[in-house]
């Protein structure tokens, strides 16, 4: 297998995730798109680690999974608070800092 296969797949996944973050209005779905981006980074890390016969890539992917879990916990808490205050999780309505 070529390294380029993995890098291309991760690039496509990353671009799809960026599109989702930019266009989704539902706050939960924005967080899911961020998960797509983090997964594309994991694909790259493991592929480079295998390519260099070094286990460090897998270790960093493990750290990314842990950080993603923390990010989802805090992010969903924020979504919950937005819903409690505004009765909506439409992120385009949470614009009180606009101006």
């Amino acid at each position: 297998m070529l390294l380029n296969q993995f890098l291309l797949l991760a690039a496509v996944l990353f671009a799809i995730g960026v599109y989702g973050v930019l266009t989704r209005k539902n706050g939960v779905l924005v967080l899911m798109s961020i998960e797509l981006i983090l997964n594309s980074v994991n694909i790259n890390l493991v592929a480079f680690g295998t390519f260099n016969a070094d286990v460090s890539g897998q270790v960093f992917a493990l750290f990314i999974i842990a950080v993603a879990a923390a990010e989802v916990g805090v992010g969903l808490a924020i979504v919950l608070l937005i819903y409690r205050n505004r009765r909506s999780i439409d992120v385009s309505e949470a614009d009180m800092l606009k101006g």
Partner: peptide, 23 residues
Amino acid sequence: QQEAHFLALVQVVVYAGAIVVLF
């Protein structure tokens, strides 16, 4: 496929299990 079996396990348990259930 890249012999990262433990990472695949963590991927399924943590991502597909815990995080999606949280969502």
